[in-house]
Nucleic acid binder design. Structure first.
Length: 375
DNA sequence: CGGCATACG
DNA sequence: CGTA
DNA sequence: GCCG
């Protein structure tokens, strides 16, 4: 998180009698992360060579705020650890392209996440769906030892670590990552300096804007982008409404991209909207990357199955140049250097009659099962 | 033992 | 093959 | 890996 915010939070915590360290040591028991994913942090911790990794808790900001109001560190449920562990296993299987096991661990993790009551003992998870012998073994280990050796091994695995780095590039999936790994490549510098590797357009953009795109997008940045899209869409057609969807609509403070739903009242009016918006973005010089997808939406063929149809609306995946001065509460101190940030943006333009469903679909969770429940 | 979402570029 |  |  930013230096200013970190100092503020640290001051707050110290005033409540918490002991806040600025550097990592074996005394550290709790690590609060605001925008780094937990598994990324575990990876980093692994490399720091700390003795008792299982004594350390990686927590999000909600733990921090709750602990502040309680005046003491609230106990960390084992549940978080278990969920993290299962997600590490799922990700590992995704990277080595074992679809089945990947799905199995993903489902197990999401079952635990969806529980209304915190898990206190092994008995609380007995009989739950999608928790088979493998998953139960991991859960038991974490209850007993605070960690699972199976998960620790994955985190230490060079292949896992390298594939994770490679697939962190926009446009690079497990197949490409594995290919590079088999060629003996181990980091991103080796990839970009290898003249025999030919990147496609998506990957070129992925490397070109890697630093920016890898950073989380703040709510203030999403709102700045919202103003830009509203402005442009309004020029194309004054009747257009722009809705911020995805994680930010669900109230999240950070995201990895920004999703917008463009809506024009009246049937068929959405035609040509996206291309016109894109043209204006391009002429303003803020369009860094474009992947446009034609709609294949045909309501006559999909009369009742609206959520599946939702995926076929006109949409585009973009990388936009966001000027820092356009972001509220962001002072640009350097007169030299870059005064903008590259951000991943998705635009969707559903036919008018599908707008309510599209809004639901893009605001909800990405997990398919949860969408089906809405249906 | 097969299935695990799906469509687009 | 990679994205959502 | 888990389910049907």
């Amino acid at each position: 998180m930013g230096k200013t915010r970190r100092n503020f939070l640290a001051g707050l915590a110290r005033s409540k009698g918490f002991c806040v360290e600025n550097t990592l040591s074996s005394n550290v028991t709790h690590i609060v992360a605001e925008d780094n994913p937990a598994d990324e942090l575990w990876l980093w911790l692994q490399k720091q060579g700390i003795a008792d990794l299982d004594k350390i808790n990686v927590l999000d900001i909600s733990w921090f705020t709750q602990s502040m109001s309680a005046g003491r560190p609230i106990p960390v449920e084992v549940q978080h650890r278990i969920e993290d562990a299962l997600e590490v296993l799922a990700e590992n299987y995704e990277l080595i392209e074992s679809v089945g096991p990947c799905l199995g661990f993903k489902k197990a993790a999401s079952v635990l996440k969806s529980l209304p009551v915190p898990v206190r003992s092994i008995r609380d998870v007995e009989g739950l769906p999608c928790l088979g012998p493998e998953t139960m073994a991991v859960i038991e280990d974490i209850f007993e030892f605070g960690s699972s050796s199976k998960v620790e091994d994955v985190l230490k695995d060079e292949r896992y670590q390298t594939l994770k780095i490679f697939t962190s590039v926009f446009g690079v999936g497990p197949k490409t990552a594995e290919k590079w790994y088999r060629q003996g490549l181990r980091n991103l510098t080796q990839i970009v300096s290898d003249s025999t590797i030919h990147l496609n357009n998506m990957q070129k953009a992925g490397f070109q804007y890697y630093d920016d795109i890898s950073k989380p997008v703040s709510k203030a940045e999403a709102e700045a982008l919202s103003r830009i899209i509203v402005e442009i869409a309004g020029c194309v057609n004054p009747e257009v409404t722009v809705t911020l969807t995805g994680g930010f609509r669900r109230g999240k403070e950070f995201g990895h991209d920004v999703d917008f739903l463009l809506h024009v009242p009246g049937p068929g009016k959405e035609d040509g909207l996206l291309p016109a918006v894109i043209d204006r973005l391009r002429s303003q010089g803020v369009l860094l990357y474009l992947d446009f997808q034609e709609s294949t939406f045909d309501i006559s063929k999909l009369p009742s199955c609206r959520f599946e149809a939702m995926d076929h609306f006109q949409k585009c995946f973009l990388i936009l140049k966001l000027k820092k001065e356009q972001v509220v509460g962001q002072q640009v101190e350097q007169r030299c250097g870059k005064d903008w940030k590259a951000v991943r943006v998705d635009l969707v333009a559903p036919p008018a009659e599908c707008y309510p469903f599209a809004l639901l679909g893009w605001s909800g969770s990405t997990v398919r099962d949860e969408r089906s429940c809405i249906k």
